[in-house]
Design a protein around this nucleic acid. Structure first.
Lengths: 194, 194
DNA sequence: AGTAAAACTGACTGATTAGTCAGTAGTCTG
DNA sequence: CAGACTACTGACTAATCAGTCAGTTTTACT
């Protein structure tokens, strides 16, 4: 079972770094320290390996957020939103591979013809947007947030944060320098009252 | 010269749709209506074809924005920002290929080792962020916008809009439904005074 | 120890790839 | 017409790819 895991870890790294087509099964095998045929013993095809890699990323992201939200207390909805954004940016730096994979084009193309792929992507994005939405709803209740449509507000906040993450992982701009501005912008959108 | 253009147009379409590695020169040739060898007569390698495709996209985006800003008048800085956002979203729907190419991972990977690629990407992003920044600066002068750091404000606005564009071209969410929320969020960030 | 199943591998295949090259057709100039 | 030049092509090559398979090793259990 450990070799299967080694293969999966190598696959995530290579799919993230090179994309689906340019990551070869031979290279996945070499990086995982197994023979080429072993990869096909554990995964029936390259596409199947990719789907398992995506599923692993999905589970990883959801688990990480669950753990973070379990282990932290927040005084208000707006603080919760800020915490989620911080953790999202932290995670995107900590396990960059996951987010590179999520920002590559291939899974979204595959999702058009493969329901399993579509399901993984939907679960990831619904989980993330849900987390933001619950925080917005909480803030609306405790009075720290003003918002009309919680879902749409959550989507805009999420797309902003995800846009900054993209800049980070594609080496376009330094996220650190943008962090304060990002948080302030969110507070303005949510009309946070000091 | 027309065949060279046909090749380039096919290349942009295929690189955008399939990514660099999965778009084959044979397919580019077939779609362009020429023989495989003709592609290599006009472009010395696949990478060189990709760079020319990226340059074409760069020129296209810059020209489109120049034309838009030339042909429109705006009452205030905040109206200008709104116009730019609208046009950005319109363009992303109108020439989706350009933005698919810009959102793919390959050019950013290539940029790490290829100065021409880096230069094209920098010009695209600097142009776009500059456009937002000038609008923010104008709004600050005419009083329609409140912002501390024009550059960082422009970057956050841009990353938000670009994040929404990504959702659109990857078929994640409907941009139309998010448009009003996006504009309102921007107005809040920029503290627009009615 | 015996044995059956699971894990693994080297050697292979057919298909596809980027890129080459020798040669042909068309066009422009004197 | 001569000849030089550009545009173009079919046929090729060497490399790489995903995937297969027959056979070997390792593990699990009695």
């Amino acid at each position: 079972m450990t070799k299967k895991n080694d293969i999966l870890r190598s696959a995530i790294t290579l799919f993230a770094d090179r994309g689906f087509q340019d990551a070869s099964m031979t290279e996945v095998a070499r990086m995982g320290g197994v023979s080429g045929a072993t990869v096909f013993y554990h995964f029936k095809s390259k596409e199947s390996l990719f789907l398992t890699a995506l599923e692993t990323v999905k589970d990883g992201i959801i688990e990480e957020f669950d753990a973070y939200l379990d282990q932290h207390e927040f005084a208000s909805g707006i603080d919760l939103v800020e915490g989620i954004i911080s953790f999202y940016l932290y995670l995107a730096g900590s396990v960059e591979e996951w987010f590179l994979l999520l920002h590559s084009h291939y899974p979204y193309k595959l999702a058009l013809v493969n329901r399993e792929c579509r399901s993984h992507l939907e679960k990831i994005y619904n989980s993330l947007v849900d987390i933001f939405e619950r925080a917005v709803a909480q803030g609306r209740q405790d009075g720290s947030i003003l918002a009309d449509d919680t879902r749409k507000t959550a989507l805009v906040i999420f797309s902003m944060v995800d846009g900054v993450v993209r800049f980070k992982i594609y080496n376009l701009y330094d996220t650190g320098a943008l962090y304060r501005e990002l948080i302030n912008s969110c507070r303005k959108i949510l009309k946070y009252k000091t």
